[in-house]
Amino acid sequence: MPGTRLDLSRIEAARRVIDPIFLDSPLYRCEALEPDLGCAVSIKLETANPVRSFKARGTELVASLLADNGAGAVVCASAGNLGQALAWSGRGRGLDVTVVAARSAPAAKLDRIRALDARLELVDGDIETARERAAAIARRRGIRLVEDSLDIETCEGAATIGLELTEAAPSFDAVLIALGGGAMATGVGHAVKTRAPGVEVICVQPLGAPAMARSWHERRVVTTDSIDTIADGVAGRHPIPAVLDDLLLVADDAILVREASIIAGMRLLLEHAGLVVEPSAALGIAAILENRDRFAGRHVVTIVCGSNVDVDAYHRWVAR
């Protein structure tokens, strides 16, 4: 697609670099969900891999490039999933991986990062504070800083999901994509709009963390002072201008959804699909619940993007 930072030939080449264990994730129509949602729903299950999220598609590209160039270390800031994915990809290539995360990040995500032999540094504050600290570490140590969504590898790795959708799915009308920093939304959006331009690309973000969605609607960077959502994986406050530029070219809409709808989506995925997911992964279902008339009678694909969730918190949410 002209104008974006992404390139279809690089995205296609990425599939030769990414460990096959992260490719060709299950895609299936989930008829059990349809009576509650009023439309045909297909699920792209990005949790069926060792790090239980889509993020490794991008970190596989980053780690491969670093290893090929003889680099020995890398650092990132993460709400949990990127750090886990970078730790997995880096460990397999002999990289020294440092992950900076907020002390308030879900314990389950932090435990998995440690289990994958990464160096974990916790900071007070949120993901924006973690990004500042990771950048400082990169400068001090002279090592690569992986910046999710800004680094093109994170977007083009995620874009391979879009290639798989257009190659494997029967005809579908719309794809619902969780929107945080924008790597998955811009990546999948680019691939889908290039291969299937008639498909509607709809991004979904929580009302409690609306910065990127507001930026899309206003066509300029809009920042927020605070975050109030259980969907920690998409809870950024400072959109990246270059990522917003890409999103404006590939997204047809950006929807904000309530916390109650996110929880209802998690509950439906458990009851009707047997899936335990983190809140970010239920954003697509939440969007359908809040916009039934818009999706009625259509075939919608939603990307279930992560399942790294604190068990106690999950039980509290779905038991309401």
Rank of each mutant, 00 (worst) to 15 (best):
R16F: 10
S89V: 08
T160D: 00
H299S: 13
R294Q: 06
D36T: 06
H315Q: 11
K55D: 08
R294E: 08
D225M: 10
V75D: 05
I240F: 10
G181I: 04
L86C: 07
C155H: 05
W317Y: 14
P279N: 14
A196V: 07
S307G: 15
L82M: 13
A63S: 11
A77L: 09
G80F: 01
G3F: 08
R112Q: 12
W216L: 15
L150P: 02
G181Y: 08
E271D: 15
R10S: 09
G274F: 09
A85Y: 01
H272N: 14
T194H: 13
A102P: 15
R131T: 09
R103W: 09
A260G: 15
A134E: 05
F172N: 01
L275N: 07
V257Y: 07
F295S: 02
M184H: 06
I43F: 12
P35C: 11
I303E: 01
V62Y: 00
G181N: 05
L247V: 12
I202R: 01
F22L: 11
A105Q: 06
V221I: 13
I303N: 02
G297V: 13
G306E: 03
R57K: 14
A138K: 01
P106H: 05
H299R: 13
E153C: 04
R114G: 12
L247T: 00
M1L: 13
L150I: 04
A79H: 06
P50R: 01
L122K: 07
A87S: 14
R220H: 08
K44Y: 10
R29F: 07
R316W: 11
V188A: 02
A101Y: 03
L116E: 05
V100K: 01
R57N: 07
N69Q: 14
I285V: 15
I262W: 02
V318D: 09
V17N: 03
V318L: 07
V222L: 13
I137T: 04
G180F: 03
T59G: 05
A191E: 03
R16I: 03
A213C: 12
S78P: 04
R237L: 10
C203R: 00
A211N: 06
C155T: 07
V175Y: 01
G182N: 05
R219C: 09
I262K: 01
G58Y: 02
R103V: 11
D124W: 13
H272D: 14
S104I: 15
I177Q: 00
I303P: 02
V175A: 12
A118I: 10
H299A: 14
P197Q: 13
D293I: 12
D68G: 15
C203L: 15
L120M: 08
A67R: 14
G284M: 05
V146P: 00
V51M: 01
A107V: 10
L65E: 11
A213V: 11
L95G: 09
R112V: 04
M212V: 14
V276T: 10
V221Q: 09
R139I: 13
A56N: 09
K44L: 13
R220F: 13
V277E: 02
G189L: 08
R103I: 13
E132V: 15
R320N: 14
G297D: 10
I43V: 15
L120D: 05
V17F: 09
L289A: 06
R103G: 08
M266L: 12
K55P: 04
A319G: 09
G284S: 01
P241L: 11
P239C: 07
D173H: 14
V222N: 11
D151Y: 08
G58H: 05
I263N: 00
P50E: 07
R131E: 12
H217D: 05
V201E: 00
P50I: 11
